[in-house]
Design a binder for these strands. Structure first.
Lengths: 363, 363
DNA sequence: CTGAAAGCGCTTACAG
DNA sequence: CTGAAAGCGCTTACAG
């Protein structure tokens, strides 16, 4: 247990057993190349001396770690606050299980994903939620380490996994507009600091494009009096708080379209506390379709995305890349709008209301 | 990206920059020891050639990985099915964040936790949910790698973190008995195959002891006609299914005491589907107090345990052990019985019923 | 400020 | 069946 205790090496075992270091190595890695008696003797001496091969030394020799790295955009506790990641990890975990590999969670080092890359001993990276976008990709390329991009802006020469974000948001916003909603609040998770410089990117850009697609058919646009865009941290608490902001900015709002179930559930909490009926007075939608989404009251209308499959496909692509396949597959997984009880037509007293006879948004 | 591409080494950078390998190493690890111009030149050449130090080689030289290992009792997808682990990981993640370390998830290799140990390049292990109990501990000792035991049977010379499992179960079962329940089903997660040989161990043993403590005061005991013990996998589906078994074995049951919220929530699902009123006809309790426990209808009466704190304390202990502190601290964290709506007095038509005037089990 | 040399602990063709 | 030797790619006293 103590850090001062010197570790036993193969050299010592070899000496004690009267064989070469080679033989010791074979005893652990390729027993068939040793006679029964030699092998048994080596193993016995190893146990006595408390020897077992050093994993790091073995990695260096074999040029292989048997670990998959997941490069995270935030510290582990922050990332796991969103149940999204739990599902995503399960998908990757299936691949680890099949391949007999471990999974290394690699959070930013001193706040930077980029800095974390050179320190992780893994056979390849799955990159989720890029910070600098091209910065990390350049570093990964430079190091010639296999990687796959998830929910990013795919480059042609890199394996990637995405979902149909644009189509999904187009569908959900269109649905609201068809029901008659004209005063919408789009509640988004924060894009991170760099989008001020470079504009939106990745899934967020695609989702906002999808929303814009739908709005444009009704001659509406973002950041107008009718359609507000709110950006907050992706937590339930932030979703709760955001409702106050929305009401003070858009008192006539009739629908809150959230870009994450976590935010939507927080908003639902706030609306309940304020005694506002959902969907009678206000409609709410989510994104992800996490298990919690069907537990809320009313149950949440939301966009279902195949989170676990995303992790599994990313893992599969990474394994292929590690094995030297030079394919750069790009997969776009499908989403679905799940209709539940949190959406209805706008309330009657709302200004600028187009009356729509019946709701299709309830179960 | 391709596995065939040879990686650039410090040797090549040194040659191209006209310096020694030492200088290259200094440029990355101890820049102050180089003149400005040399350092800049080396870094420039590195970028041009696409060099950055190999993490595995660095680990071997420094005898340090900057990774914490979490030894898991099952494959990653199985483990993460229980939201328990998400919270536990967050606790460990806090420590990783503070220390600038990564977190390696180490599932069993070929079904064995023991086999996984020698292959993981980590500075130390947190061990959660032991399989062989003493087997893994012996191996960890043998390798002289720092480790801390969580929810195990603590040995005196090993850092460990536990909760007051025995007291918690004594309290919850006592509560049921005081309410008048005499027909109880204890719904437990499976202990794993080895308990057939060695008997129960760890938290399960302590919890069952606690239950026995309470039962004995009423002259009741396990596996009698009055008190059944059911063991199923720790999943919601298994909790759902178990209800059928319980009813066919104990038709007079008035309370189901679950050893996990996941099981309790599954049981609640089953009872709702069967039209059985909780707590009117049947009482249900959980264990863990996961966020979901307050979302069910009725909300779940359960044992709260500080899961995140458990992970954090385990991480702290491990860091201390890695830094060579020879302390073997043992911490027992406290639990609390959280009273919600899923518990009431037994139904009146139940046989062998002792009438108890009022419920204290509702919110 | 810079470099030669030893060391980290293993694996694996290759030769016998 | 067994071993001597080279190699994996870095770091770090030590000497200058």
């Amino acid at each position: 247990m103590t850090a001062t205790a010197r570790k036993v090496t193969a050299r010592e075992v070899a000496d004690a057993a009267g064989v070469s270091r080679t033989a010791v190595s074979f005893a652990f890695n390729d027993p068939s190349r040793l006679s029964e008696s030699t092998r048994v003797r080596i193993l016995r001496v190893s146990t006595e001396l408390g020897y077992s091969p050093d994993p790091v030394a073995r990695m260096l020799s074999q040029r292989r770690t048997n670990a998959l790295g997941l490069l995270l955009p935030q510290a582990i506790p922050d990332v796991l606050e969103n149940p999204y990641y739990s599902l995503f990890l399960r998908g990757i975990g299936q691949v680890c299980h099949r391949e007999g590999m471990t999974l290394m969670l690699v959070p930013p080092l001193r706040g930077s994903m980029l800095s974390a890359i050179p320190y992780a001993a893994v056979d390849g990276f799955i990159v989720s939620g890029l910070q600098l976008d091209r910065g990390e990709v350049a570093e990964l390329r430079r190091r010639q380490v296999p990687f796959v991009l998830v929910d990013s802006d795919a480059a042609d020469d890199v394996p990637s996994v995405e979902i149909t974000d644009r189509e999904a948001m187009r569908e959900v916003v269109s649905h609201m507009l068809e029901l008659g909603h004209r005063q919408l609040a789009i509640l988004s998770f924060e894009a991170g600091p760099e989008h001020f410089e470079h504009g939106y990117s990745g899934p967020l850009r695609r989702r906002l494009q999808g929303a814009a697609d739908a709005l444009s058919r009704y001659d509406l646009q973002f950041r107008s009096r009718s359609v507000g865009l709110y950006e907050v941290p992706c937590t339930r608490a932030a979703g709760y708080q955001a409702v106050g902001d929305i009401f003070s900015t858009q008192p006539d709002v009739t629908a809150i379209v959230c870009l994450s179930d976590v935010l939507a559930i927080g908003a639902l909490d706030a609306l309940r506390d304020r005694g506002i009926d959902v969907p009678g007075q206000l409609s709410v939608t989510g994104y992800d379709d996490q298990p919690e989404a069907s537990w809320t009251r009313p149950a949440l209308t939301t966009v279902r995305q195949p989170i676990e499959a995303k992790g599994r496909v990313a893992g599969d692509f990474l394994i292929a890349a590690i094995q030297g396949e030079d394919q750069h597959p790009q997969q776009v997984l499908h989403t679905a709008l799940i209709m539940r009880g949190s959406v209805g037509p706008p309330r009657q007293d709302a200004p600028s209301l187009t009356v729509v006879p019946a709701s299709t948004g309830k179960e």
